[in-house]
C-alpha cells in the first residue's frame, strides 16, 4: 500500500538530509506507528506520501500512485485516497460538525444526496451522533478530534495518516481516539500514525518504525516505544 525505495530528502535551507536513503513497505490494512524525536524526519515522511514534497532521490508509491513522478494534475486523486488527521484538528470554526465533515466531500464534487447519506453514517461511526449541529468550540478536544477523524474517513480513504493525533489530548481521551483509529483500521484502511506517546505505542503492540536523523533505525512487527525509556 505504501512503499518507499531509497528515498532521500534534502531541503534547500539545510545541508543535513531530512530523510536519508529510507526504504520501507507497509501493507494494506496494517497499523504502523512512526516514532522518533523531533527533527527525525517523521513529518517529511508524511508530507512525501501526500506529495506536499517531492523526494530528492528515490521513489514513493501509495496504492498504485507513483507519487514522486506523477503530474500535478493527478495529485488531487492521490489525496482523495488518503485521509489526514493532525494534532491541532484543523476544523473550520464557522461550520457545524456536520458541515465540517460535508466540506471534505463538497470540495471534491460529491453529489448532495451522497453527502446527506454518508455524513450521518460517519458521525455515528466516530461516536458523534446527536452532535451534528454543534459548533467546534462547543466540543471537547477529544470530540473535535473525532470530527477531524470523521472528515478524514468520510471519503473511505485507503490510507489514514495521523500526525500526533493525541498530542493535545489527555490520556483517557487519547485511549478513546486510539480505539477509534483501530476501528477504522479494522475496515481495511492502512493507518500510519506519527507519535511521541510512549504509553499508546506500548499498549497497542503494533508495528513500530523508528526514525532518527532521517534514517530508519528500527522496524519491529509488534514493538514498543523504546527499550529502557
Amino acid at each position: 500500500m505504501i512503499r518507499l525505495e531509497h528515498v532521500s530528502k534534502v531541503y534547500k535551507t539545510s545541508t543535513r538530509p531530512a530523510l536519508d536513503n529510507v526504504s520501507v513497505e507497509m501493507d494494506k490494512g496494517e497499523f504502523v506507528f512512526l516514532i522518533g524525536p523531533s527533527g527525525s524526519g517523521k513529518s517529511t515522511f508524511l508530507r512525501l506520501l501526500l506529495r506536499e514534497e517531492v523526494p530528492s532521490k528515490g521513489r514513493v508509491y501509495v496504492s498504485n500512485f507513483d507519487v514522486a513522478k506523477m503530474s500535478r494534475r493527478r495529485v488531487p486523486r492521490l489525496r482523495q485516497s488518503i485521509g489526514c488527521v493532525f494534532q491541532d484538528f484543523r476544523l473550520l470554526t464557522n461550520k457545524t460538525v456536520a458541515e465540517n465533515v460535508a466540506f471534505a466531500l463538497e470540495v471534491i464534487g460529491k453529489p448532495r444526496n451522497t453527502i446527506v447519506k454518508v455524513v450521518p453514517e460517519v458521525l455515528q461511526l466516530v461516536g458523534l451522533d446527536g452532535k451534528a449541529d454543534r459548533m467546534p468550540h462547543e466540543l471537547s478536544g477529544g470530540e473535535q478530534q473525532r470530527v477531524a477523524i470523521a472528515r478524514a474517513f468520510v471519503n473511505r480513504p485507503l490510507v489514514l495518516l495521523a500526525d500526533e493525533p493525541t498530542g493535545n489530548l489527555d490520556p483517557d481521551t487519547s485511549q478513546d481516539i486510539m480505539l477509534l483509529l483501530e476501528r477504522i483500521n479494522r475496515t481495511g484502511t492502512t493507518v500510519l500514525m506519527a507519535t511521541h506517546d510512549h504509553s499508546i505505542v506500548d499498549s497497542m503492540r503494533r508495528r513500530v518504525v523508528e526514525l532518527d536523523h532521517g534514517r530508519i533505525i528500527r522496524d519491529d512487527a509488534r514493538g514498543v516505544y523504546g527499550v529502557g525509556r
Partner: peptide
Amino acid sequence: RTEVGIMRLVGATRWYT
C-alpha cells in the same frame, strides 16, 4: 487559508480551490 489548506488536503482540484 485554513479552508484552502483543507481543500488541498482532501484532494480538491485546482479549479475547485
